[in-house]
Design a protein around this nucleic acid. Structure first.
Lengths: 333, 333
DNA sequence: TCGTGTTTCTGGAGCGCTCCATTTCTATCC
DNA sequence: GGATAGAAATGGAGCGCTCCAGAAACACGA
C-alpha cells in the first residue's frame, strides 16, 4: 500500500494490496494449483486494481527459462508460415508457452544469426522454419526442430516436415491421371523444392514420361516462377500442364501462361504446393498440395516438448502426409 | 576460469577469462564508447571462446528497459506490414533497438490484448499496426504510435500513416484521367478503407460523376473483394473501372472480373492500394497506390524515439504522401 | 483433545545484468 | 618530478521475479 507513485507496481505491491505473500502472488501468476479460490480471487482483484503487469524479464531470469519458443522465419511473403505458426501456437499456448518470431533481419550487434538472438532471449526451444545452416546450430543448447525442411540433417535436431517428395508425386500423378503427358515442373532453390522435384521426376519416370524442369535465377519467388515457366513454355510448346514447387511460384507461372496466351485450365493445367491463402483466391482457384502446415507446427511443438522432458530421446524425423486439394486450375486433357 | 561445467557462462565468466571487470564486459556488450581497443578485443575474444550469449532478461531487468519496440499486427496475410517492419527496423537497429512482433493470437493468460503481452516484455515503445481499440491503450505507459491508421484518435498516441484519402483521390483521378466515367469502388471494414472511400467519393463528386460503392461481408480480404466486385459488376454493367481498397481486395476483384468475362485492362481497368508484393506479380501487374509503408515505419520509429526523449511533446499526426504506381491493369477507355 | 497427514502459504536466496559513484591509469604541462 | 585533467576501468547495489525448504493452517480419526 506504500507504493510510491510513478513506479510500476511489482509483485510485492500486489501482495500487500491483497494481504498475502509475494510467493502466493507468484503462484497465482503462474496458474499453479493448490491456491485457495478465495486468495486467488483476492490476488486477481489486486492485480486488476493496481493495473499490474508481470515482468517477463524477471520471471525469465529467476526461473532460468522463458516459457517461450523461438521460431526462425525467412520470408514473410511466402505465406506457408501462417498455418505453421497457428499450429505451434495451438499446441503451446495451453501449456503457458509463448511464441517469439525472429526473421533474418532480426540480427543485432554481435549476433551472427537470428538463432543467437533467440538464445539471448533464453528460449526454451527453437523451431527453424527456413533453410538451416551449420552456423545457426553452433550455439544452440536447447531442443531444436527443423520444420518444413528435411533436406539438411542438423545434428541433434528433430525434423518435422510434410513429405515433399510424396507431395511432388501426388501433384504429378494428379496431372497424369487427368490425361496429361507433357508436364513441366517449375522448381527453385532450397531443399523442399529439391524433394518436390524428385517426387515429380519419380512419378514421370514411373509412367515413362519425359520430365521437363526449369528454374529461375533466384529462389522460389513469384518472379522466379514466372521466369522458369516462360522458359518451359517456350522450349516445350506442347506442354499441357505445369507443376510449380509452391503457390507463389504458381502465381508466377500463371502470369507466364497469360503472357503466352495460354488459358488456365483450358490450355494449360497448373498445380501449386502449400495451399497458401493465395491458392484459394478466386482468380487462381489453384489446385495445390496441402502440406498440412498446422500439423507440421503442432508436430514441431510436440517434438520440442518431448525433448525438453527427456533430452536424450533419439532424434526423430516426422513426416506429415500431404494432401491434394483440387480446385479449378487443373482439368482433363 | 573456474566456470563450472554445464552452466551457461555469464558476464563474470567472460570478465575473468578476459582479465577485466564485469562492468567492462557490460560496456563492451552495449557498444559503449570509452573502452580501449585492446580491452575491447580481449573481451570479444573471450565472448567468442566461451560461446557467451548475453541474457536479455537480466539486461532488461537491471536496466529497466528492454531496448525493444513492440509491434501489434493483425493479419499476416495482408502483406502491407512487410515494408512497415522493414522501415521500422532500418531506423531502430542502428540505435540498438530490436523489434518484437505480437499478433492477436499472442494473448496469454491474464492478457486482454496483445498490448498487455508487450507491456510485460517491458517494451520501450509500441507501434499499433492494426485497428486500435480503447482497451489496448488502457495499460500503456510507454510511447505509442498508431501506424497506417488515422481513423481512430488514441489519446496520447502519435499517428503516422499514409494519406489514405489523398490516395483514394489519386487512384480515382488516375482512372478519370484515362477517360473512365463509370468507376466503382470496392471497400471494406476499417478506418483506412473508410478514408480511401472518402477520397474516391470526393474525386468522383468533383467531376460530377456518380459513385458506386460496394463492400463484402467481412473486412478487407480477398473474398470480400471478390464478393463486392461481383455485386458492382452485376448491378452496374456499364462499369469500366474499379478501384479496390487494397491489393488483396483487388486480387478478389480480378477474380470477379474473370468470372464475369471482363478482361483486364481491355474491358475493365483495375487499381489497388498498398503496392504489396502481390501487386507486382506478373499475373496482375496491378496499378496501385504505394502508401510508402517503409516511410510510415521509419516515421513511426522517429516518433517513438522523439517521444521517449521528451514525453511531453505535443501529439502529432504525420501523413506520408502516397504515390501512384502505374502498371498494366489500367488502360485508357 | 491430541496426533498425524495433507493442503496452503511464506521468507530467503539468488538469477545476470545495468547503473553509478568512485578509483585507477595515462597524458600533458610547468 | 609533481600537479592536474581527462579517459578508462571497477565494485556494490539492486532490478522483480522463481524456487525451495520449511511453517502454518486445516482435516480427520483415535
Amino acid at each position: 500500500m506504500t507504493q510510491e507513485i510513478g513506479r510500476r507496481p511489482n509483485i510485492y505491491d500486489v501482495a500487500s494490496a491483497a494481504g498475502v505473500s509475494k510467493s502466493l502472488v507468484s503462484l497465482v501468476l503462474r496458474g499453479a494449483p493448490g491456491v485457495s479460490p478465495a486468495r486467488r480471487a483476492a490476488v486477481e482483484e489486486a492485480i486488476e486494481r493496481l493495473n499490474y503487469r508481470p515482468s517477463r524479464a524477471a520471471a525469465t531470469l529467476a526461473g532460468n527459462r522463458s516459457r517461450t519458443i523461438g521460431v526462425v522465419l525467412d520470408d514473410y511473403r511466402n505465406l506457408w508460415f501462417v498455418d505453421l505458426l497457428a499450429g505451434l501456437h495451438n499446441q503451446l499456448a495451453p501449456l503457458g508457452y509463448r511464441v517469439a518470431v525472429a526473421d533474418p533481419s532480426f540480427n543485432a550487434r554481435l549476433d551472427r544469426t537470428p538463432v543467437d538472438g533467440l538464445m539471448s532471449l533464453r528460449v526454451d526451444g527453437i523451431v527453424i522454419a527456413t533453410e538451416p545452416t551449420e552456423e545457426m546450430f553452433a550455439a544452440v543448447d536447447v531442443p531444436a526442430v527443423v520444420a518444413g525442411n528435411r533436406d539438411m540433417a542438423v545434428p541433434g535436431a528433430d525434423v518435422v516436415a510434410n513429405d515433399d517428395m510424396m507431395g511432388g508425386r501426388l501433384a504429378t500423378e494428379h496431372l497424369i491421371g487427368l490425361g496429361h503427358r507433357d508436364i513441366g515442373h517449375v522448381t527453385g532453390g532450397g531443399g523442399a523444392a529439391r524433394l518436390r522435384a524428385l517426387g515429380y521426376d519419380a512419378a514421370m519416370q514411373a509412367r515413362g514420361l519425359r520430365p521437363h524442369i526449369a528454374r529461375g535465377q533466384g529462389l522460389t519467388t513469384e518472379s522466379d516462377g514466372y521466369e522458369a515457366a516462360l522458359k518451359l513454355l517456350d522450349e516445350n510448346p506442347s506442354l499441357t500442364a505445369i507443376f510449380a514447387a509452391n503457390d507463389t511460384m504458381a502465381l508466377g507461372a500463371a502470369g507466364a501462361a497469360r503472357d503466352r496466351g495460354r488459358r488456365i485450365p483450358e490450355d494449360l493445367s497448373l498445380i501449386g504446393y502449400d495451399n497458401s491463402p493465395l491458392a484459394s483466391a478466386n482468380l487462381l482457384r489453384l489446385t495445390t498440395i496441402d502440406g498440412r502446415n498446422a500439423e507440421v507446427g503442432a508436430g514441431a511443438a510436440r517434438a520440442l516438448l518431448d525433448r525438453s522432458q527427456d533430452p536424450a530421446t533419439q532424434v526423430r524425423t516426422v513426416l506429415v502426409e500431404p494432401e491434394l486439394v483440387i480446385r479449378t486450375s487443373t482439368a482433363a486433357r
